[in-house]
Lab assay of single mutants.
Amino acid sequence: QTVHVKGVQYHFPNPEEAVKFALKVAKDLGGRVEFHGDEIHVE
């Protein structure tokens, strides 16, 4: 599972961890989380 944050990719073997990370980052940055297939983008 890959999380993209402002052009940087973070790889997580566990999808659940990836989602938790993405939600935390989005909250910290005041952004939103978008799901694109296997990828999660924080915009």
Rank of each mutant, 00 (worst) to 15 (best):
K24M: 12
G37M: 06
Q1I: 15
F21K: 01
N14Y: 06
F21P: 01
G31R: 03
A22P: 01
G37F: 06
V25T: 09
E16W: 12
T2R: 06
P13F: 10
Q9R: 12
T2G: 03
V8K: 12
K6L: 14
L29Y: 10
V25L: 13
A22G: 02
A18P: 00
Q9G: 05
A22H: 00
I40T: 02
H36Y: 13
A22M: 02
V25C: 07
K24W: 09
V8Y: 09
N14W: 05
G30C: 06
A26Y: 03
G7M: 04
K20I: 10
P13V: 12
L29I: 14
Q1T: 15
F35M: 09
H4I: 15
G30V: 05
P15E: 11
F12N: 00
T2Q: 04
V8L: 10
E16N: 08
A22W: 02
V33E: 00
Q1V: 15
V8I: 12
E16Q: 12
H36E: 06
E17N: 06
I40H: 02
H41Q: 04
E39R: 08
H4E: 05
V19Y: 15
P13N: 14
E43R: 14
E39M: 09
V42I: 11
F12R: 00
F35V: 08
K20R: 12
D38H: 12
Q9T: 14
H4W: 15
H11F: 14
Q9E: 11
P15M: 15
V25P: 00
L23C: 11
K24S: 12
G30P: 06
L23H: 13
L29F: 10
V3S: 00
A26I: 05
K6G: 15
K27R: 11
L29E: 06
V5M: 06
L23N: 13
V5H: 06
L29P: 01
N14C: 04
E16L: 10
E43F: 15
A26T: 03
F35G: 02
R32K: 11
E17G: 05
P13M: 13
H41Y: 14
E39N: 10
D28Y: 11
H41T: 08
P13Y: 10
D28F: 10
K24L: 10
A18R: 00
H4K: 09
